[in-house]
C-alpha cells in the first residue's frame, strides 16, 4: 500500500492503495465516482473511458501510479450542471438504452469533438469503434455526436 495523490475533476485526492491498482477501481471503489464503468478489464470495450490530461484512456488497464502527475476527468467532472454540449446532445438524441456504456461513449465523443469540431459520419464511427454498446444504440450515439458538433 502506498499513499498516492491524484487530481480528479480538479480536486486533489489522496488514496492508500497498491500503485499497480487500475485507476478504475480507485475512482469507483475508493473515491465513489461510479459513473466510470467496468466492462471487460482489458481495454476492449471502452466503458471505463476517462480523460488523463484531456486524452481518453481506458481506466481498467491504467495503473493509478501512471496518473499521479496528470489531471483526470471523469463523467462526473465533465460539466457543472450536466450541460456539456455532448451531454445535452445525448439527451436530445435519447441515445442511452441500458446506459452502462454511455459514460465511456460520452468521454470518447468529447475527445473526438475537441480535436475535430465537425466530424464526418465515418470519422465518428471510426473514433468511437472502441466503445461497445450491447444494446446497440449506435445509430443514436452517432446522431448525438452529430447534434453535439452542431451545438458546441
Amino acid at each position: 500500500m502506498t499513499e498516492l495523490s491524484i487530481n480528479v475533476n480538479g480536486q486533489s485526492q489522496v488514496v492508500n492503495v497498491d500503485p499497480t491498482t487500475p485507476v478504475l477501481w480507485v475512482l469507483r471503489e475508493h473515491l465513489g465516482l461510479t459513473g466510470t464503468k467496468y466492462g471487460c478489464g482489458k481495454a476492449i470495450c471502452g466503458s471505463c473511458t476517462i480523460h488523463l490530461n484531456g486524452t481518453p484512456i481506458r481506466a481498467c488497464i491504467t495503473p493509478v501510479a501512471a496518473c499521479t502527475s496528470g489531471k483526470i476527468t471523469t463523467i462526473e467532472g465533465l460539466s457543472e450542471n450536466n450541460n456539456h454540449p455532448v451531454q445535452k446532445a445525448w439527451v436530445e438524441a435519447q441515445a442511452p438504452q441500458c446506459g452502462y456504456c454511455q459514460s465511456g461513449q460520452i468521454m470518447q465523443a468529447v475527445s473526438l469533438l475537441k480535436n475535430n469540431t465537425n466530424p464526418t459520419r465515418e470519422e465518428i464511427k471510426s473514433y468511437l469503434s472502441g466503445n461497445l454498446c450491447r444494446c446497440a444504440a449506435y445509430m443514436r450515439i452517432i446522431n448525438a455526436v452529430e447534434i453535439a458538433s452542431k451545438i458546441s
Binding site: T34, G35, E76, N82, Q87, W90, P96, G99
Partner: peptide, 17 residues
C-alpha cells in the same frame, strides 16, 4: 432515466456501496 445515464449518476448494482 436518460438524463441520469448521461452524467454518471444512474446507479447500477455494481455501483452500490
Amino acid at each position: 432515466d436518460i438524463p441520469s445515464k448521461c452524467n454518471g449518476s444512474a446507479q447500477y448494482a455494481m455501483d452500490i456501496k
